[in-house]
Computed example of a mutant assay.
Amino acid sequence: MTLKTTLFAGLSALAFAMPAFAADITIDDAYARSSGMSAKAGAAFFVIHNTGAEDDQLIDAKSDVAKRVELHTHKDMGDGVMKMLHVPEGFAIPAGGEHTLARGGDHVMFMGLNQGFAQGDILTVTLTFEKAGDITVEIPVDLERQDGMGMQHGKMDHDKMDHGKMGGKMSDK
């Protein structure tokens, strides 16, 4: 890769990493990942900030990158196995607060990917909030990110993890 290409890719990633916002809601530090080009599932993570005086609720997510897009969380089923669950009511965003979607916790789940995620790809995702309405976010794919957020993935049994009908495994990396 030439220096010019590397510089352009770096500047593009920085531009897409800038926060998206609407009214009192801001989306920050967004990234997406899958376990590889042949993966059937992927996920997106970010921080939602609410600077308003009223609570809001993330109630839906849409994207053309997958057949199904849902709001998910992980739950310990008490037998050492974590289960991924659809959260149809979404996630509360407190007034003057934030809600983090992170690996091992709440996230946007893409099931039945139309094509694999490649490092540096940009996903267009529309987030629907109860009060703020739709916010379209450009989310960079970062397959190399090691952020230490969320739970200890090493303790998860991915073979037993319930990914829904269109399942697929998420990487520990």
Rank of each mutant, 00 (worst) to 15 (best):
P88W: 10
K165H: 10
G96L: 00
G168K: 03
M156R: 12
G36K: 02
D157W: 05
A22Y: 07
L101R: 06
G90T: 11
H99M: 15
A44D: 00
P19A: 10
M111Y: 03
M84W: 10
D28Y: 15
G154P: 01
F16R: 12
L85C: 02
G116Y: 10
P88Y: 10
M161N: 05
M18A: 14
S38M: 11
E138Y: 09
T6R: 10
I93D: 04
H107E: 09
F21M: 13
A95R: 08
K75L: 13
D106N: 15
E54I: 04
G36V: 04
L123K: 00
I48E: 00
A13T: 12
S35F: 09
M1R: 05
G105R: 07
F45A: 02
G148S: 01
A61S: 07
L127H: 03
L113S: 07
F45I: 00
Y31M: 05
V125H: 03
L85I: 11
M161T: 15
F129H: 09
Q119H: 15
G133P: 07
E144A: 08
F129S: 03
S12E: 12
A22R: 14
L58Q: 05
T136L: 05
T26F: 14
F8S: 13
L14S: 06
V81Y: 02
L14E: 05
L14V: 08
L71V: 13
Q152F: 09
K160Y: 07
S63I: 09
A66W: 07
G112F: 03
D159E: 10
A92E: 13
L123Q: 04
L3T: 01
M161D: 02
D56E: 09
A95S: 10
D147K: 01
I122K: 10
K173Y: 12
T26Q: 14
S35P: 01
N50I: 06
L14K: 07
F45L: 04
M109D: 14
F46N: 03
A13M: 11
A22I: 08
V69I: 15
Q57Y: 03
F91H: 07
G112Q: 02
I59N: 00
G104Q: 07
P140I: 10
G90K: 06
V108E: 02
G90Y: 08
I135S: 03
T136E: 12
D134A: 03
G42C: 06
S12N: 11
G154E: 14
V141F: 09
A20V: 03
H49R: 11
G164F: 00
T26S: 14
G154K: 12
K83Q: 13
I135F: 00
Q146E: 12
F129M: 04
H49D: 07
D162G: 04
D134W: 02
D142K: 08
M161S: 08
P94I: 09
G42R: 02
A118N: 14
E70T: 15
L14N: 04
L143H: 05
T73P: 03
G10M: 00
D142Y: 05
S12K: 15
H72Y: 15
R145P: 01
